[in-house]
C-alpha cells in the first residue's frame, strides 16, 4: 500500500500547503482580533460541531468498507475490531487503549480464521 499515484514530490507539496493553510486557520482570529471583533455567533456554533462530525466521518467508513465494497458481516475482521475499539473509546476516552484493543483484535482475527 504505497503512495504510487501522488508520489513523494507531490506529498511534499501537500505537506507544505497544509502547513501554510493550518497556520492561516490558527492565526486567523488571533491576528485579526481588534479589527474584526468577535467570531459571529452562528459561525461559532457551527464550528463547535466540526470536530465530532469530521472525525466520525473519517472513522466509520474504514470499519464497514473493504476494498470499496460494503461488508456488514460478523466475519469481517475490520467490523469486529472497529466495533470493539469503538466501545473501548466510548467507555475510556483513552486513545492507546482504543488502538491496543482494535489492533489486537484485528491481528487475532487474521491469525484465527
Amino acid at each position: 500500500m504505497t503512495v504510487a499515484d501522488p508520489g513523494r514530490t507531490a506529498l511534499w507539496l501537500a505537506i507544505v500547503v497544509v502547513a501554510i493553510g493550518t497556520f492561516v486557520l490558527r492565526s486567523s482570529l488571533i491576528l485579526l482580533f481588534g479589527r474584526t471583533g468577535e467570531l459571529p455567533s452562528r459561525l461559532r456554533a457551527a464550528l463547535r460541531f466540526v470536530p465530532a462530525a469530521v472525525l466520525a466521518a473519517l472513522a466509520f467508513p474504514a470499519f464497514v468498507y473493504l476494498d470499496g465494497s460494503l461488508v456488514l458481516s460478523p466475519s469481517s475482521e475490520r467490523l469486529v475490531a472497529g466495533g470493539l475499539a469503538t466501545v473501548v473509546a466510548w467507555r475510556t476516552e483513552n486513545m492507546l487503549a482504543t488502538i491496543g484493543v482494535g489492533m489486537a483484535t484485528l491481528w487475532l482475527l487474521s491469525v484465527v480464521p
Binding site: M1, L55, A56, G82, A89, M95, M103, L106, W107
Partner: peptide, 16 residues
C-alpha cells in the same frame, strides 16, 4: 500488521 488500521482507531478515539 495492517498498521493503516490505526488511523480510524485514532479518529474514533478523538471523536469521543
Amino acid at each position: 500488521l495492517q498498521l493503516q488500521f490505526v488511523l480510524p482507531l485514532v479518529f474514533v478515539s478523538l471523536m469521543f
